[in-house]
Measured scan of single mutants.
Amino acid sequence: RKWEEIAERLREEFNINPEEAREAVEKAGGNEEEARRIVKKRL
């Protein structure tokens, strides 16, 4: 699934746990840019 690939990239890029990465992607509706913004806000 594409969402899992996005979550994996976010996890590696921001050094967050898989659960946090998945939550961000879900919140963003699968949009990678939006997920990235969500993760950055949390850091």
Rank of each mutant, 00 (worst) to 15 (best):
R9G: 06
K41H: 13
N15L: 09
R36Y: 02
N17I: 07
I6W: 02
A21F: 02
I6N: 01
R37Y: 02
K40W: 03
K2C: 06
A28I: 01
L43N: 07
F14W: 03
R11D: 03
A28Q: 01
R1P: 15
L10W: 01
K27F: 07
K41M: 07
E19V: 11
E4H: 07
E4K: 06
N17T: 15
R11V: 15
R1V: 13
E8D: 12
E26W: 05
K40Q: 13
E32K: 04
L10I: 12
N31G: 04
E12M: 11
E5F: 02
N17R: 08
E32C: 04
E34K: 09
V25K: 00
R42S: 14
E19L: 09
P18M: 15
E34G: 07
G30D: 02
E34P: 01
E26A: 13
R1N: 14
E32V: 10
A24Q: 02
K2S: 13
E4C: 04
E4N: 07
F14T: 03
N31K: 07
N17Q: 12
G30F: 05
V25D: 00
E23I: 12
W3S: 05
W3H: 09
K41N: 11
E20H: 08
N17M: 11
A7C: 10
A35T: 02
R36M: 06
A24E: 02
E33S: 09
V39A: 06
V25N: 01
K40F: 03
E26T: 12
R22D: 07
I6Q: 04
R42A: 15
K27I: 12
N31R: 07
R22G: 06
A35L: 01
G29A: 13
A35R: 00
A28K: 01
I6R: 01
K2P: 12
E20Y: 09
P18V: 14
R37K: 13
N17W: 07
E34S: 07
A7R: 04
E34W: 04
N15Q: 14
E5Q: 07
E23A: 12
I6Y: 03
A24M: 06
R22V: 09
L10P: 00
A24K: 01
N15Y: 08
K2H: 13
V39F: 01
K27Y: 06
A21G: 03
A24D: 03
K27R: 13
R37H: 10
G29E: 14
E32A: 08
A28E: 01
R1H: 14
K27N: 10
E5P: 05
A7W: 07
E20T: 10
